[in-house]
Design a protein around this nucleic acid. Structure first.
Lengths: 400, 400
DNA sequence: GCACTTTATTCGCGAAATGAATAAAACAAT
DNA sequence: ATTGTTTTATTCATTTCGCGAATAAAGTGC
């Protein structure tokens, strides 16, 4: 919101590059950020002074002939405490503990249905789960929490306006958790978190415009412009998964029909596959990875009805990507999430639909990537953002 | 492309606000831009020095009691030459001459079919038309030309990658016109130009995210973020009008079927209306305003078949706006262009479709405006952008 | 003519970034 | 050992930029 001062922005870029590329010497930082050695010296001096960074003693010389003054690598002090990243699924909570450098220290997942909880109860459960996780991992000094969930999330005000996971609307989740935990809590749409994590790993996705389509429990979109998340009017992400592509399609969790999600999400494929097989209705809302794999395997073995299902899903995926291409003209489109497990089955109809949907000049422009991303990236993305917020606060606190 | 220096960016903002809000005193500029008087004094001193601005002598005191030192208003010198703005339609060229302050000095339109011309011939015709227009209006000193056209336009490289108006693909239109005219030429997608012009007139549209949907000869989208045009991978705009909403809909000019345009554009409504009336096929590709008005009048009079036509079009418009809401979460959506003439006929099905298509939380967020905009805004938008480019060059030239 | 009000300019300061000079810390060679 | 070479890091003076405060300017009202 408040535009960062030049100093704060340089500071942020410096810490970002250190988190991404491990310990770096000052010259290396200068090269990567296009800064003069003088500026880097200046910035790092204050960061060392504040105890945020430390110099690395271990002069483990890199291979090859080494002349000149040896590099002194800088990295985060390990006395700055930890941050917890959380992802809430339908009946599952993923947790991750990272240190101030963003390195994974512990991760865990807890099976816990969240769908039918009252708002207060839900926040109690989340707070307890987070506290227990921190205690079990021996992390006494958790500075902040980042939480990613499906739905329409107002990151600035910390409100979940709508979510298929939560029953409530306009839930002030961040404030509720902050009260319970006594720590700052950042909440974020999960597709946005995924997009951010993917962009941290691939520099290509940090320049220009990148649209990340996450297919899994639902379908979400995370949009990056110059490596930063695009934020809409309520600083939320996109509810692209609930664009209705077909006038009278299958039922969607949002209450509508024919949404992108209602064809592509795991729950949709699973539901339709079970109808085909005349098996009993699923006991849980979200199918297990095993059962999804079983459906995919059955389709790969040649089951014609299931092949039809994936063919229709691929077509919807092609239409969806086509809309993104025509509307946003992105440099990169990344298809990610568990749904990519069936990309071989989706691809023929996906590419056909994309070809029909788009003008060739535009289609050839966007590089389409299928990234095999685990759900780990969700907590990684949101925890990195929470860390960045913390950097910002540290800078503020020092100034005061 | 090259990031503007702080000075250059402040300079641009100053000239922008002067073009928008007429002659202004230095204090007034400071208030509007949130700059200190000292900074404004500094900036205006150099601009006066360079002869870009002049002080206004006419001390025509505003009404009411006036005490204190009188304001000295600043404005553009009128010795800086002119800029021509052009819009190319199917069989029509719109022209506009503005001075360096952006004030309209002359405008004209020429009936001239452009569809079936070869690339070289087309550029000859355009160059001749522009030269003749400048000569007729007595503008001896035209500094630059801005041209808006439908289709997928690469503004940075000056290439029309694809356009329904032009036969050619990947036409280096800017370079071709620059060679013929000996002046810099800026080309731009026409919906982007319209969006820019609309945002110049309404400050609400210059903050946050504004999506401008232009309905007329075709359907185009111009996207503004913080008052500046969003540019995609090839720095073009969007081809949103060619998103295919219906699997097997009516034929579109792009070669596909079921595009948004194929329901909403004038040519589509006119074509279908004539089929209904069993009248002969139209002689021109683009119907006249009169014939469109006739169709609308007949529908308003209660013709059931025509009402169906507008009902279907409204539904598509609702779906289109819904996609924008769900994907981009804009602060403002502006529906503009000649197509708004039938907004009363479109509105019921438009609103119903929008309600079905969107999640209430998101829908309530975006303010939807219907702006009765004349085609004049097209040339206005592109000419203002060409002027801004010129400011930029002036700053560069002085520095050298 | 004098007080008052509003507008504009000047001046000095501080933040930020940089190039150039300098210092530091090693190894290599004699 | 001493000196030179090479690379890394810091210091310092300079420039750009914007701003607050003081000052000057240009009117009106009495």
């Amino acid at each position: 919101m408040i535009p960062l001062s030049p100093r704060e922005s340089a500071r942020r870029r410096l810490l970002d590059v250190l988190r991404r590329e491990g310990p770096l010497a000052r010259v290396e930082i200068g090269q990567r950020l296009g800064m003069s050695p003088a500026s880097v010296s200046d910035l790092t001096a204050s960061l060392l002074d504040e105890g945020i960074l430390v110099t690395e003693e271990s002069g483990e010389h890199a291979s090859g002939l080494l002349r000149g003054r040896p590099k002194v690598r800088l990295f985060f002090a390990d006395t700055l405490g930890f941050v917890v990243g959380v992802w809430t699924g339908f009946n599952r909570i993923e947790l991750r503990l990272v240190d101030s450098a963003g390195r994974n220290r512990a991760s865990r997942h807890v099976e816990r249905p969240l769908r039918n909880l009252e708002a207060e109860e839900l926040m109690d459960v989340l707070a307890e789960t987070i506290t227990a996780f921190a205690a079990e991992t021996g992390a006494s000094d958790v500075k902040a929490v980042g939480l990613a969930c499906q739905g329409y999330v107002d990151t600035r005000d910390g409100i979940v306006a709508w979510s298929p996971v939560l029953g409530a609307r306009d839930l002030p989740l961040a404030a509720g958790l902050e009260r319970r935990l006594g720590k700052p809590v950042l909440i974020e749409n999960d597709a946005s978190a995924m997009a951010f994590a993917i962009a941290q790993r691939n520099p290509d996705f940090r320049s220009g415009r990148t649209a990340c389509l996450m297919v899994g429990d639902g379908v979400g979109l995370g949009l990056l412009v110059q490596g930063e998340l695009y934020r809409g009017a309520r600083s939320g992400g996109s509810e692209f998964g609930h664009v209705r592509l077909r006038r009278s399609g299958p039922q969607c969790r949002c209450g509508g029909r024919g949404c992108i999600e209602a064809y592509l999400a795991d729950y949709a494929l699973h539901r339709d596959a079970q109808l085909i097989d005349h098996r009993p209705a699923p006991t849980t809302l979200i199918p297990s990875e095993d059962s999804m794999e079983a459906i995919v395997a059955q389709a790969r073995a040649g089951d014609p009805a299931l092949l039809n299902l994936f063919q229709a899903a691929g077509e919807v995926l092609g239409d969806a990507v086509g809309i993104l291409v025509q509307t946003l003209e992105p440099d990169h489109i990344v298809i990610c999430g568990p749904g990519t497990r069936a990309m071989d089955l989706l691809r023929p109809s996906f590419e056909a639909a994309l070809a029909i949907q788009t003008i060739p000049e535009l289609r050839d422009l966007a590089a389409i990537h299928v990234v095999d991303s685990s759900m780990d990236l969700l907590t990684e993305g949101v925890v990195m953002q929470a860390l960045r917020e913390l950097d910002f606060d540290l800078a503020r606190l020092k100034a005061a």
